[in-house]
């Protein structure tokens, strides 16, 4: 299924950006709010408040967005055809998860040009757990001809709270999916813009230099003393904001959750950078993860005291 937009026909199998546009249009048609990437560094699309926080509370929520995801330890100086320290995830979240969510997902694969009658699609058990978010869910990794093209998760808990109703989360690894669709073995060879000849812009043209530079930064240059300090500052600021925001919301509930949560994901990313620099020992690792989890839990607790979190207005005395 190709989606017609004015005179332009999207070519998800030939262009990385058309793949993204197709998924956005597809999920927009399913009633999702199409958001733009969150502007704080995160390790995965799940960390976007549109997933983590919106998974909590009773209110329905359907959204789709691209999220640049940073995994500093996965940097390979641009020399590995599959691994990147910065890559894109496409995320669709549906709450409550509709009964036909698997079919909706499969149709999204059709939309990007995967023909179900000649490709072997499989749902292979994959339980998801995020120790830093205090979250877990059950689901699958979705295989297309043996390749994992998506993660499919029914959220059960976030921040230690039960998700009710349950949010269904679909995460597409865009580079990998595009490599599959375009039949390319090296991520840097992906056609980014669908152009031919001189007009062709490759993924490498856009990101190779960035991968090299960030690998140097992540593994060699990043100032670890400052990173440790930033981590402390972010954690402290998160707690301070949560403390100050109590009861200051427009309807009497918590009034400063999202800024606090930003500090929480900053702390998480700073931890990842420190990890890549190899300055966190095995024993310390656990304690850092627990610190971030405590921040995430505190944010989730506060979120449930807000309007979007479904809290009833607090009567003024």
């Amino acid at each position: 299924m190709a989606l017609n937009m004015n005179d332009r026909v999207l070519q998800p199998t030939k262009s990385f950006q058309d793949l993204i546009l197709t998924l956005q249009l597809y999920w927009a048609e399913q009633g999702c709010v199409v958001l733009q990437p969150y502007d704080v560094e995160v390790g995965a699309g799940t960390f976007h408040p549109a997933t983590v926080l919106r998974a909590l509370g009773p209110k329905p929520w359907n959204a789709a967005y691209v999220q640049p995801s940073r995994r500093p330890t996965d940097g390979r100086y641009g020399e590995n055809p599959n691994r990147l320290q910065h890559y894109y995830q496409f995320q669709a979240v549906l709450k409550p998860s509709p009964p036909n969510i698997q079919d909706l997902y499969l149709k999204s694969l059709e939309a990007i040009g995967i023909d179900m009658s000649s490709h072997d699609i499989r749902f292979v058990e994959d339980d998801w757990e995020s120790p830093t978010l205090g979250a877990w869910g059950l689901g699958w990794e979705v295989w297309c001809d043996g390749m994992e093209v998506s993660q499919f998760t029914y959220f059960q808990q976030v921040g230690g709270f039960d998700c009710s109703p349950v949010m269904g989360e679909l995460t597409y690894g865009l580079e990998r999916l595009a490599m599959y669709c375009q039949g390319v073995d090296n991520v840097y060879d992906l056609n980014f813009n669908g152009g031919e000849g001189d007009n062709r812009v490759s993924y490498g043209d856009v990101f190779l230099q960035a991968e090299q530079e960030y690998s140097r930064h992540n593994f060699e240059y990043a100032n670890t003393d400052k990173l440790f300090q930033h981590f402390k500052d972010a954690a402290a600021e998160c707690n301070a904001l949560l403390e100050q925001g109590k009861g200051t919301g427009s309807h009497g509930g918590h009034g400063c959750v999202l800024p606090a949560y930003d500090q929480c994901i900053k702390a998480s990313h700073l931890f990842n950078l420190l990890d890549a620099r190899g300055v966190i020992s095995v024993t310390e690792r656990q304690s850092y993860i627990l610190q971030v989890r405590d921040l995430a839990k505190a944010c989730c607790t506060a979120w449930l005291e807000t309007e979007a979190g479904g809290a009833q207005p607090v009567e003024a005395e």
Binding site: P81, N82, S118, H119, D120, D145, G146, M147, Y180, G183
Partner: peptide
Amino acid sequence: TLVSNLETKDDGKQIIAGNERVIRARLSD
């Protein structure tokens, strides 16, 4: 040897090709 869940008109040509590509990447690693 792979076990697929699908009979196709092309006798699994695309399925095999897809699996070969994934396996090539895995084995390269």
